[in-house]
Design a protein around this nucleic acid. Structure first.
Length: 555
DNA sequence: AAGAGACGCAACCGCATCATT
DNA sequence: AAATGATGCGGTTGCGTCTCT
């Protein structure tokens, strides 16, 4: 006899034993006349569901009610299992790494929560969605930027390159293959420019991964490029595989860029200064007019500057994070000039590896491979500077793994998401073959591997030069207050040069509670913002100024 | 201390897609 | 090919908790 007392299901009974008198407002009648329960799950229900899944496996959720008498519909069971009961779920607050990664993913994918979750081990789409939505609300209220500046910079770079390539993105009329290839090659070209011209960073591994290139750019103080129109989706019914309006490069050409534009915050209706390259005539306040666009992905190479103390406390090691050899990380200090590279990879703390259910074997160990390559090849600085421009022709020995190229190329293809607020195209929708491959592509994508280490900022001084500073300042042309306002993302100033005058405390104040609360553990006087977002690679920031300058020339 | 508002989260809903018959 | 069911996904809502005044 099943008795429902409040939310508790006392005993195992058949569903029909539940009389109408026992029903609460959260009950309803199922398809077979079975009264199904709604509302919060009880521990007893959880046990029943877990037991069922252990016996029968996942799937066939509608059979759960039949076999167990659980008064829940199949959808509810599936949801409960996926979001709360399945193993390897990572509970607790998002780490800074995860937050940054989510921002990057969202810049690429838009509201593709499930796909984003596939790259965040142990996280659910619902969790990510909730996090993002709440953050959107918060930041909208505050009139603050939605994406980290470096994400915006990447979008800027992308748009610049696209323009230089004859506006291939324009009008969404280009064949997707061309577009994707162009986008990918853009990243390669950008990164080549960095390698060829900076002269500071001695070696950059020939990762074919555009994300790695992006990471190399992360240190850039790119606030000035950011448009901070929060890319909230229109409130109409969801448009699966639909096209969300965005201003692509051609649009930008038409309307011009306003590097220091303004936008009217949707919620507060206040006008906030921003370093926007947003079209001045945005027809739809909710449309994705921002030019912020990133297709980078940390893919395990996330910069690792957030102290792990808090994360460790909040999130105990879970099954999806098998321990790695701690000693393999940072046991011997890398060459200083390589730190900017290593900073993306190394971590003295356990690095989580890919979760079994959302990764493919070929991705396992990629991070290690990349790191190995970075360190190995760093000794031969000039070894392969002439080969990076054509990664597709490299031999297996030239890179960590030739498969990595494929992996990341497909990753990039995957990230040209048709519904991304910054997606380069919507025409993928018109290419069924690509759409059909979407799933397989996803399977090949790397997932975020969480690293965490003590922020390494000491190398800033090692690489910072007056030249690079001047370049930065001339490029940024930052107007103080605007910069501050627009730079709420915590890599603010990247902690170097004159921008460093924007102290962590200042940033904290400007960032508001969401960051201040998160960063309370951080030591004052350090580049909290860099730590927060793992943008500890200030050396890279300095180094890449050269590349950015060249990029500007290209643009 | 109490109330209001904000926040965070779990869960539901509707629709789309896929698989099967 | 059409119908049907199962599953997946994104949007939305409701409610408990927290924070601020």
């Amino acid at each position: 006899m099943r008795r429902v007392s409040g939310n508790e299901i006392e005993d195992e009974v058949l569903p029909n034993d539940l009389s109408a008198a026992q029903l609460t407002d959260e009950s309803y009648e199922g398809s077979a006349g079975v009264v199904l329960k709604k509302g919060p799950w009880t521990s007893t229900e959880d046990d029943i569901l877990v037991d069922y899944v252990n016996k029968h496996g996942e799937g066939n959720w509608n059979a759960v009610q039949k076999h167990t008498g659980l008064l829940r519909c199949g959808k509810s069971c599936r949801l409960r299992w996926a979001n709360h009961l399945r193993p390897n779920l990572k509970k607790g607050a998002f780490t800074a790494e995860e937050e940054r990664f989510i921002a990057e993913l969202h810049a690429k994918m838009g509201n593709k929560w499930a796909r984003m979750a596939a790259h965040l081990p142990g996280r659910t789409d619902n969790e990510i969605k909730n996090y993002w939505n709440t953050r959107i609300k918060r930041r909208q209220r505050a009139g603050l930027p939605l994406y980290p500046p470096e994400v915006c910079l990447q979008g800027f770079q992308e748009s610049q390159r696209s323009q230089n390539n004859g506006g291939l993105n324009g009008g969404n009329k280009m064949h997707p293959d061309l577009l994707q290839k162009n986008s990918y090659e853009t990243r390669v070209a950008i990164f080549d420019s960095l390698k060829d011209n900076q002269g500071i960073l001695p070696y950059v591994p020939e990762f074919s991964d555009v994300s790695v290139y992006d990471n190399m750019l992360k240190g850039l103080d790119s606030s000035q490029y950011c448009s901070f129109r929060p890319p909230t989706s229109p409130k109409h019914k969801r448009l699966r595989e639909s096209t969300i309006p965005f201003i692509d490069s051609s649009d930008t050409k038409k309307t011009g860029l306003y590097p220091f534009g303004q936008f009217r915050d949707n919620n507060s209706d206040k006008i906030a200064q921003s370093f926007a390259m947003q079209a001045p005539l945005d027809p739809a306040p909710s449309s994705h007019s921002s030019m912020c666009y990133s297709h980078s992905l940390s893919n395990g190479n996330s910069s690792t500057s957030k102290p792990t103390y808090e994360a460790v406390k909040l999130e105990l090691p879970s099954l999806q994070y098998p321990e790695l050899d701690l000693g393999s990380w940072g046991t011997s200090p890398p060459p200083s000039l390589l730190e900017s590279v290593d900073d993306f990879f190394q971590s003295p703390t356990p690095i989580s590896t890919l979760e079994s259910d959302c990764s493919s074997p070929q991705n396992s160990g990629l991070l290690d491979a990349l790191l190995y390559q970075a360190k190995t090849l760093s000794s031969s600085k000039n070894h392969c500077s002439d080969k990076s421009s054509n990664s597709s022709t490299a031999t297996p020995g030239d890179r960590a793994d030739s498969s990595a190229l494929n992996v990341y190329e497909t990753e990039w293809e995957d990230y040209v998401d048709p519904v991304s607020p910054f997606g380069a195209t919507s025409i993928l929708n018109e290419c069924p073959a690509l759409r059909a491959n979407e799933n397989s592509l996803d399977e090949q994508l790397p997932v975020l591997t969480f690293t965490g280490n003590i922020p390494k900022l000491e190398f800033v001084d090692q690489v910072w030069t007056p030249e690079s500073e001047n370049q930065t300042l001339s490029l940024l042309n930052i107007a103080g207050s605007d910069f501050l306002l627009a730079s709420d993302w915590p890599d603010l100033g990247s902690g170097h040069g004159k921008n460093q005058a924007i102290t962590a405390d200042t940033a904290m104040t400007l960032l508001g509670d969401d960051f201040s609360t998160d960063q309370k553990h951080m030591t004052a006087g350090t580049s909290q913002s860099s730590q927060m977002w793992g943008f500890g690679s200030c050396a890279t920031a300095a180094n890449n100024v050269h590349g950015l300058c060249q990029l500007s020339d290209l643009g």
